[in-house]
Design a protein around this nucleic acid. Structure first.
Lengths: 139, 139
DNA sequence: CCGCATCCTGAGCGATACTG
DNA sequence: CAGTATCGCTCAGGATGCGG
């Protein structure tokens, strides 16, 4: 990383400043990258989207997210909790009950995530067609 | 998987229908998943975001995306082209020149992607604080 | 019911060197 | 300038089994 560090020390990295991260200072870049990576995780988006119905229990989420493994649900939930995007409430009952719900911060991301999912749903057929056409042409 | 398959065969998978994918038929699920995965690729979002300035050349993109390798830029561009999100124009000159630009379809995704990047930039400090607090509490 | 620990595989990605 | 080709590794993530 920082391959052009030795080029011109006075100009910092003007080239990089033109990119999509231009609005944010250099020291934040990698954190933004990290946030972006996490948002792009396989399940994070879908978990957040699933939580718009209100509080959900662990097993509810498991059923609402076809294909997710217990492991990944646990990990994803922990990350989201750690980042303050969801809150976790455990009730001392038998059998135990744990409910997850979006925090205000989480809800701000929720809206974006939902629009992304909607986008995928709306345009996936167009994308499929583009892909087929492309493959046919490149054959 | 499908632990409740033996429960009520007539009701198909109503549980799954409640999730965030509820709006879309079952056969589209995995395609949506795929589109979502692609959007969550390490560089896809940033490449799309970088292209809002208008047409860009290969090396322009390389400079505007600090840390990306030639390999990943090539692969990402190819996927985006294949999916019809960007168009590629090669000019028969010396030296060769190739320009990439968002298609109308790509521009619809662009807006979402930008809002996601902005979200990351706005909230990453809050997330960092949450994380620190969480780690301190769990110590 | 709600997880955590372990093992394991392969896709994603970076580094490097080479071509039209 | 705009890619391609090859190697190697890391690590996300699936399967399974156990524990509170």
């Amino acid at each position: 990383m920082d391959t052009n560090a030795g080029q011109v020390t006075g100009k910092t990295d003007t080239a990089a400043l033109l990119g999509p991260c231009a609005r944010w200072p250099v020291e934040d870049r990698e954190i933004i990258r990290h946030v972006l990576d996490r948002a792009g995780d396989k399940w994070t988006a879908l978990v957040i989207a699933a939580l718009d119905d209100g509080p959900l229990r662990y097993t509810d989420l498991l059923r609402r997210l076809p294909g997710i493994s217990q492991r990944m649900l646990t990990l994803t939930l922990r990350q989201l909790h750690r980042d303050g995007l969801i809150s976790r409430t455990a009730y001392a009952e038998v059998p135990p009950r744990v409910e997850y719900v979006l925090t205000p911060l989480g809800r701000t991301l929720h809206d974006i995530v939902v629009s992304l999912i909607d986008w995928a749903g709306i345009h996936h057929d167009e994308i499929s067609r583009n892909r087929s056409r492309f493959d046919a042409a490149t054959k």
